[in-house]
Structure formats: C-alpha cells, structure tokens
Nucleic acid binder design. Sequence first.
DNA 1: TTTTTGCTAGCACAGTCATGCTACTAACGG
DNA 2: CCGTTAGTAGCATGACTGTGCTAGCAAAAA
Lengths: 192, 192
Amino acid sequence: MDRAARKARLAQAVWQVIRERGIGAVSVRSVAEEAGVAVGSLRHLFPTRAELLEFSAELMVQRARERIRDIPRTENVQQYALEVVKHLLPLEPDSRAELEVNIALIAETPALPKLEAIRDHAYHQLGEACTQLVGMLAGRPRDRQIEEEARRLHAIIDGLAIHLLMEPSSQDTGWAVAIVRGELARIAGGAA
Amino acid sequence: MDRAARKARLAQAVWQVIRERGIGAVSVRSVAEEAGVAVGSLRHLFPTRAELLEFSAELMVQRARERIRDIPRTENVQQYALEVVKHLLPLEPDSRAELEVNIALIAETPALPKLEAIRDHAYHQLGEACTQLVGMLAGRPRDRQIEEEARRLHAIIDGLAIHLLMEPSSQDTGWAVAIVRGELARIAGGAA
DNA sequence: TTTTTGCTAGCACAGTCATGCTACTAACGG
DNA sequence: CCGTTAGTAGCATGACTGTGCTAGCAAAAA
C-alpha cells in the first residue's frame, strides 16, 4: 500500500504552493492541481484542509529529524557538531524551502491550533539536541551552565537561519558558518 | 486632518485580526468589522487589500523604530545597549504582538511582493543598529571583527525573540535577558 | 459470479472574497 | 446660494472557498 507515498506527494504539493504563492493560496483545489490529482482524490486521503496542513507540517518535521539523525558521527566532536548545525541552517535549497514552509505554518497557527503542538514538539527536540551537542563539546554532564550555553547556541542557530533566509539564496553563506564554527570552538574550549 | 489617525486605527485592527485568527483571516471585511467601520469607509482609505497590509507593515516598523530611538542614552554604555536589546525582544505584550504580526507578514510575502522591500529595509536597519551598538561597546571604530560580532549579536537577538515567542508569555524571561547581558559584557570586555 | 473495498472524479451548496460602482451625507469655498 | 470635496455606506459581480454528497471504476474477496 503506497498510501503513505501518495500522502507525502500531496504534502510536497502543499510546500510548493506555500513557497510559490504564500500560505494564503493553499486550498484543497490549488494543492490538488499542483499535485495533478482531482480534488476528490485529495479529499479521500485528507478529508479536511486542516488534516492536509497538519500532515504536511508533521512530515516536514519528521524529514528534518531523520536528516539530522543520519549524519555520521566523526571522531572529531566539533566537526560533527558543525555538520549537524549546518543541516539545521537553510544552506541548501531543500532546507531553505523547509524553513519558508515552517514560518508560514507558524503564521497560520491561530487558525490551526494543532500546528502549535507540532511546532512545540519540534522546538523542544531541537533544544534538547542543542543541549546534547553542548554537553558533548564541553565534555561533561549536563549542568546549569551547559543549559545556558545550549539555549544560546539554539538562539544563534535560529537567528542565523532567519538571516540566511533574508539574503538571496545565491549570496555568500560563509559568514554564517564562520560564526557557528567560532561559537562551537568557544564552547569546546571556553570553560577553561 | 486626522486621516493618518484613521489609517493607524485600521492598521491596528489588522494586527488584531492577525493575532486572533491568523493572517489568513485578514480581509477587508474582517478588518472593517474589527475596526467598527463599513467596508466602503475602509476602502476609501485603502482601495485594495494589498495597500492595507503594506501600510500596516510599514507602520509597525516605524513604531518599533521610534520606540528604539526614544530610549534615553545613559552614561553606562552596556546598560544602554541592554535597554535597546530588551526593546527588540518580545518581552511586553505589545512587542510580542509586533513580532507575531511580523512573522505573519513575512509568511505572506510571496503573495505581496512589496512586503519584501519593507522587511528588507527593517532587517538592514536592525543590522546597522547592532553594528553601532557593538562599536560603542568595543569602543573602537568599525572593522571586520566588529561586523562579525554585530552579525552574531543580531542573530542572538532574533533567535531569542523567536524562542520567547514560543514560550507562553507568562513564562519566566530572565534567562533570555541573562544571555543578552552576558553577550554584551563579552563584547565590551572580550577583545582583551 | 456477486459483493466489497479503495480510490478517483466531480457536482452542488452555502459562504466569503476583492473590488467596481453608485448613492447619500456633510463640510467648506466660492 | 451652489459646487466641490471627503467620507460613509452598501449593492452587484464574478471568482474562489471547504465540504457534503453521489457516481463510476477497478481490483480483491466471497
């Protein structure tokens, strides 16, 4: 049963519409057309518009989570951490699109309360990941200072992500990576 | 002529609708009702929906700019800088609403291209403000390192802003201010 | 074979949308 | 006094919306 695949295909059509015409243009009709199916077919998988958007949001989070999880661990902790953070920033067209969609969905939260839970979950997972990263870098178990450093790293990541999104995608992105690299080095050696 | 005041009143109705029901619920009808005027009256001030949203966005940016500009300069540079940053974070209901509206407007950019210019302008102004702040803190003219520090500060501010928005507004916000304070102190004394 | 099931397709309805348009009121300049 | 102007109000139109509903179609199950 490739039901899941068909649902994923429709979710991708949702993302496409959001990126091209904004969240306001997402309707069962526009998404069905983008995916090349009839409205009836779409509504067989997603009876309501809300379910369509919720699934799309969840799938996006899941994809990102898997992408991060599949990064191979290298012996050099700093390099591994840098690789993880690079996958959290919108450096590639894919991850860029992901963030655009993410922001659009956050903006629609007042109209779709279930999105709030999805976003909160993703947010806390990312926070947890930052804490573990900082713990690995500092080479000691979690304590109060590590948690503050993690919050700070988390903020830098999200801030840089937004700034990268503002710049045209063609622009140089080295400055952002440089900041991250410096931050990671500071965390790794900074406690001393 | 209180034409400007009436336009501002309508812009506030736009923000209200965005916060309560999401950007998707913003229509000439919903805004007019929220403001307690007839659709025809609204359309006398703003002939099209796009003009209404563009004005609302610009007014919001302008309000924020004025709020920052009116912060009194204290002799202690670090304290002044902290005060500025605190006004850039969604710590009060007003600034919180501002950020919510901001995100919603960014999300609608694909549908309203003019919003992109407004947002870019605000973004660069904030970047410039960060550079000046860092320059003041470091006590030396602008150079490459100062610009990198400024970018980092800018990222931390925007990242923290988002994180504060995620937490319920009632939550403790001291941790965010603590991070900012540490960052400012590091910049001021850190070059050594 | 007949029946059930998963899916596709689309019609119909009631509602909302932006916007063009006219009509009405009131203030102000001549 | 009249004409002009700004503002208020609302009607009409054509398009788009989500969703309930029926109907067809093909494969699997009975």
